[in-house]
Write a protein that binds this DNA or RNA. Sequence first.
DNA 1: TGTACATCAGTGAACGCGCGTTCACTGATGTAC
DNA 2: TGTACATCAGTGAACGCGCGTTCACTGATGTAC
Lengths: 193, 193
Amino acid sequence: MKVTKAQAQENRARIVETASTLFRERGYDGVGVAELMAAAGFTHGGFYKHFRSKADLMAEAAACGISQTKARTGGVDIPEFINRYISREHRDARGSGCTMAALCGDAARQPEAIKATFAAGIESLLTALEREGVTLDTLDQRKARAKMIDMLAHSVGAIVLSRACPDDSPLADEILEVCRSEILAPLSTSVDN
Amino acid sequence: MKVTKAQAQENRARIVETASTLFRERGYDGVGVAELMAAAGFTHGGFYKHFRSKADLMAEAAACGISQTKARTGGVDIPEFINRYISREHRDARGSGCTMAALCGDAARQPEAIKATFAAGIESLLTALEREGVTLDTLDQRKARAKMIDMLAHSVGAIVLSRACPDDSPLADEILEVCRSEILAPLSTSVDN
DNA sequence: TGTACATCAGTGAACGCGCGTTCACTGATGTAC
DNA sequence: TGTACATCAGTGAACGCGCGTTCACTGATGTAC
């Protein structure tokens, strides 16, 4: 059952996207190659016609996921970004949410190639955020970058810590609410600084 | 080869501590029961004389790890806490570092019992931090709690994001430096607020 | 205090299972003539 | 344009391996008399 070259490319892309979602939901170790291929609509044997190993796919899926987050960030101002990012909706939607928040713990234990993909993804997301950051507060480029790195770490921390709490725990919500308002507070009064 | 009751208790504690370290280093899925028992100086068969399952141990190891972090926080003021927490030393010493930073990504996918342990650990760490937070800034109890939740999420985010970057990556260091100084800056000028 | 017996922490072989990966095979697609 | 052949995406059985867990066994400890 050979398939059109274009079809094969499409199938490959579907595998990467499916993997990106499943990895975010259950972690790199939580999804097997067979399950992943089945979710994409294939049998497991064909996997190695597209990827040299599961680790290779992990790197591609990470790049795919982070670029999704970046795409969704385009043209969104900082307060809006925070409101969307630090929300219960985002916390509860791991599969469609931010790859960094979902997988940075896993990434830390993966080969350097995957960590490099993460670093590149963070850099590219920062570029998008800096653009907004500069206009926000009449900051120069360097300060804007620092603020955006800080804000990203802060936001990731809020989601990650909230997710480690039981689903219905008051603390899980409290973490989100507190962090959201602490980050937003200085922004709305930024004219004073 | 039965063993004294006291000895058995001691052995059990050693298994929990060993597990706590190994899980932080390699994640819950990254360490098997057999390897873990070997690291503690035993064969794997005896594991189930102490724990009902690996998941049970995971919960105990998390509690043990977080209480270690809490113990180390006692009597440390906030700037000192930040300086120690958001450091390359901490980032590179996963096994002896903060359990929340090392495992909250994993915890998010674990059964509620383990998440409950995390939530309880976070609460108890917050209690310790609030005590410092109140004195820091003439804050009332409620504001101190909010500040400490925010600071903890912020700090965890910094470590977690930094660890997702390649070991020698400039970005990994930049994240730590930026977050450290952004968190410390308002503290040193807090008399003005 | 001394003896006989029950307990149970620790051992190491064995269990079924799912994992990542390999492989011979299929058959439609792509290519050479 | 039509025909013959090579390619290779996708299939599904099979591989070795390490996992969490179970189990019969050991022998020092703890207990009952």
